[in-house]
Simulated assay, not measured.
Amino acid sequence: MKEQDRINLAQGVKTIRENLPAMLEMAQLNAQVTRAKYLALVKEGFTEAQALDLCWRS
Rank of each mutant, 00 (worst) to 15 (best):
Thr34Gln: 13
Asp53Met: 08
Leu54Val: 11
Asn30Val: 02
Thr15Arg: 12
Thr47Cys: 15
Glu25Lys: 11
Glu25Thr: 07
Leu29Asn: 15
Ile16Tyr: 11
Pro21Ala: 02
Arg35Ile: 08
Thr15Glu: 13
Glu18Ala: 13
Glu18Asp: 06
Ala51Lys: 03
Gly45Val: 10
Glu18Arg: 14
Met26Asn: 12
Asn30Gln: 13
Met23Gln: 11
Gln50Lys: 03
Glu18Gln: 12
Gln28Val: 08
Leu54Pro: 04
Glu44Val: 14
Leu20Asp: 00
Tyr38Pro: 11
Ala49Val: 09
Glu44Tyr: 08
Leu41Gly: 03
Leu52Met: 15
Ala51Ser: 04
Arg35Glu: 14
Gln50Thr: 09
Met26Glu: 11
Asp53Ser: 13
Phe46Val: 10
Glu44Trp: 05
Arg35Val: 05
Ala51Gly: 11
Thr34Lys: 14
Tyr38Leu: 15
Gly45Ala: 05
Ala31Phe: 01
Leu39Ser: 10
Asp53Lys: 05
Ala49Met: 09
Glu18Met: 06
Thr47Phe: 09
Leu41Glu: 07
Glu25His: 05
Leu20Trp: 02
Cys55Leu: 02
Leu41His: 09
Asn19Ile: 00
Ile16Trp: 07
Arg17Trp: 06
Ala40Ile: 09
Arg17Leu: 06
Glu18Ser: 07
Cys55Ala: 10
Leu20Cys: 01
Val33Ala: 14
Met26His: 08
Asp53Ile: 05
Val33Ser: 09
Cys55Ile: 00
Met23Thr: 04
Gln28Pro: 01
Leu29Glu: 15
Glu48Pro: 00
Thr47Val: 09
Lys37Asn: 15
Arg35Asp: 08
Leu54Asn: 11
Ala31Cys: 02
Leu39His: 04
Ala22Asn: 07
Gln50Arg: 05
Glu18Lys: 13
Val33Leu: 13
Ala27Thr: 05
Asn30Lys: 03
Asn19Leu: 04
Gln32Glu: 13
Val42Gly: 08
Ala27Tyr: 01
Leu24Gln: 12
Gln32His: 06
Thr34Asn: 13
Lys37Ser: 13
Arg35Ser: 06
Leu41Ala: 14
Ala49Asp: 15
Ala49Gly: 10
Leu39Gln: 14
Leu29Ile: 08
Thr15Asp: 12
Asn30Trp: 02
Thr47Met: 08
Lys43Gly: 04
Thr15Met: 06
Cys55Ser: 04
Thr47Leu: 10
Glu25Val: 05
Glu44Asp: 15
Thr47Gln: 08
Leu29Met: 15
Asn30Pro: 02
Ala36Cys: 06
Ala31Arg: 02
Ala40Trp: 09
Ala31Gly: 04
Ala49His: 08
Asn19Cys: 00
Leu54Ile: 09
Thr15Phe: 07
Ala36His: 05
Thr34His: 10
Leu24Asp: 04
Ala27Leu: 06
Glu18Thr: 04
Leu54Arg: 14
Glu44Phe: 14
Pro21Tyr: 02
Ala36Asn: 03
Asp53Leu: 07
Gln50Tyr: 02
Glu48Lys: 15
Gly45Phe: 06
